[in-house]
Simulated assay, not measured.
Amino acid sequence: MASEVASHYDRIVKRNAEANGETYYGDMEEYKISYKDKDTSSFRLFWKYAPMFRVMELQDMYRTMSVYLMLFIFIALICFAAVFVIAYTRCITVAMYNRQMYADLKYLGAGRTYLYNCAKSQILKVFKMPVLIGTSLTFALYFFIMFGNDGGLTAGELAGVRSCVLVIIAITLVIWGFYRSVLRKVCKMLGI
């Protein structure tokens, strides 16, 4: 049909290409738009005669962004659950493998403070570097994406960076609370 035209279609370029004996790229099948695909995102994005209503565009943008946000939150929760399971398993494994060593140290006269500091040092190694690397790389990536957009930070981007810092602080506090509970569990297992 005459209105099944992509937004990049240019009649002048087509006429010049045909005059030179070349095939216009807009006539190739992969660049054509068809009403059969009217429910696809490529049709909505690239149809030349698509009506533009600001209210509908904003609602569509909000709906799309909310889907992306829910998907991101879902994936983030799965990743954090995996991190907690792996860290917990690793800490309990360290405690079980070193149970005899702590019993020997206790038998040789090591104090509770020394044993607690040894267990704390071992458990902290499981949490410290992953948290530091993960949070600093996340912040650096977000900051450089915002800065790289236009070579500066607008007020909205600064608000986004502040929000990123607050989220990182909240996540770090949650991980710290988890670390403290795992440390208590390990100390209980070791009899410290």
Score class of each variant (00 low, 15 high):
residue 45 L to T: 14
residue 125 K to N: 11
residue 37 D to N: 15
residue 52 M to G: 02
residue 50 A to F: 06
residue 149 N to G: 13
residue 91 C to E: 02
residue 6 A to M: 02
residue 167 V to L: 15
residue 46 F to H: 14
residue 183 L to Y: 04
residue 58 L to D: 04
residue 170 A to M: 10
residue 124 L to S: 14
residue 71 L to S: 10
residue 166 L to M: 13
residue 180 R to W: 07
residue 145 I to G: 03
residue 100 Q to S: 13
residue 97 Y to M: 08
residue 133 I to E: 05
residue 12 I to R: 10
residue 153 L to V: 01
residue 84 F to N: 09
residue 44 R to N: 12
residue 47 W to C: 04
residue 70 M to S: 13
residue 108 L to W: 09
residue 71 L to H: 09
residue 101 M to C: 01
residue 72 F to P: 01
residue 31 Y to E: 13
residue 71 L to D: 12
residue 23 T to A: 13
residue 137 L to D: 03
residue 183 L to Q: 01
residue 148 G to C: 08
residue 92 I to F: 07
residue 46 F to I: 02
residue 35 Y to F: 14
residue 163 S to Y: 02
residue 48 K to Y: 08
residue 77 L to P: 00
residue 147 F to Y: 15
residue 145 I to N: 04
residue 81 A to R: 02
residue 181 S to V: 14
residue 132 L to Y: 03
residue 53 F to Y: 13
residue 12 I to D: 08
residue 79 C to E: 12
residue 45 L to E: 12
residue 185 K to P: 01
residue 176 W to Y: 15
residue 101 M to K: 14
residue 37 D to M: 10
residue 187 C to N: 14
residue 19 A to G: 05
residue 143 F to N: 02
residue 105 L to M: 14
residue 149 N to C: 01
residue 96 M to W: 05
residue 28 M to C: 11
residue 110 A to N: 02
residue 56 M to Q: 13
residue 151 G to E: 01
residue 119 A to Q: 05
residue 116 Y to H: 08
residue 55 V to D: 12
residue 38 K to R: 15
residue 22 E to L: 07
residue 70 M to P: 00
residue 165 V to A: 15
residue 95 A to E: 03
residue 46 F to T: 06
residue 117 N to A: 09
residue 81 A to P: 04
residue 91 C to A: 15
residue 73 I to Y: 08
residue 67 V to G: 04
residue 110 A to Q: 04
residue 68 Y to T: 03
residue 143 F to H: 01
residue 93 T to E: 13
residue 158 L to E: 07
residue 89 T to I: 07
residue 74 F to C: 11
residue 157 E to S: 04
residue 176 W to R: 11
residue 163 S to W: 06
residue 121 S to M: 05
residue 91 C to F: 00
residue 76 A to T: 03
residue 48 K to S: 02
residue 116 Y to N: 00
residue 31 Y to K: 11
residue 113 T to N: 09
residue 21 G to M: 01
residue 34 S to D: 08
residue 24 Y to P: 02
residue 146 M to N: 11
residue 40 T to I: 03
residue 74 F to I: 08
residue 72 F to E: 05
residue 106 K to L: 04
residue 144 F to P: 05
residue 6 A to C: 15
residue 99 R to E: 14
residue 58 L to K: 10
residue 120 K to L: 09
residue 83 V to K: 12
residue 129 M to A: 10
residue 95 A to V: 08
residue 146 M to Q: 13
residue 6 A to R: 12
residue 63 R to Q: 09
residue 127 F to Y: 15
residue 177 G to E: 07
residue 155 A to E: 09
residue 154 T to C: 01
residue 62 Y to A: 06
residue 179 Y to M: 08
residue 171 I to V: 14
residue 75 I to P: 04
residue 2 A to C: 05
residue 172 T to F: 05
residue 118 C to Y: 03
residue 66 S to P: 00
residue 96 M to F: 07
residue 10 D to N: 15
residue 143 F to W: 07
residue 54 R to V: 06
residue 125 K to D: 10
residue 81 A to I: 03
residue 40 T to L: 07
residue 35 Y to M: 13
residue 16 N to D: 10
residue 170 A to S: 14
residue 25 Y to V: 10
residue 37 D to C: 06
residue 141 L to N: 06
residue 175 I to C: 03
residue 121 S to D: 09
residue 174 V to W: 04
residue 23 T to P: 00
residue 140 A to Y: 06
residue 132 L to I: 12
residue 83 V to D: 15
residue 186 V to K: 04
residue 111 G to L: 02
residue 149 N to L: 11
residue 59 Q to E: 15
residue 12 I to H: 09
residue 19 A to T: 06
residue 54 R to Y: 12
residue 51 P to V: 03
residue 122 Q to T: 05
residue 150 D to F: 01
residue 170 A to T: 07
residue 172 T to I: 00
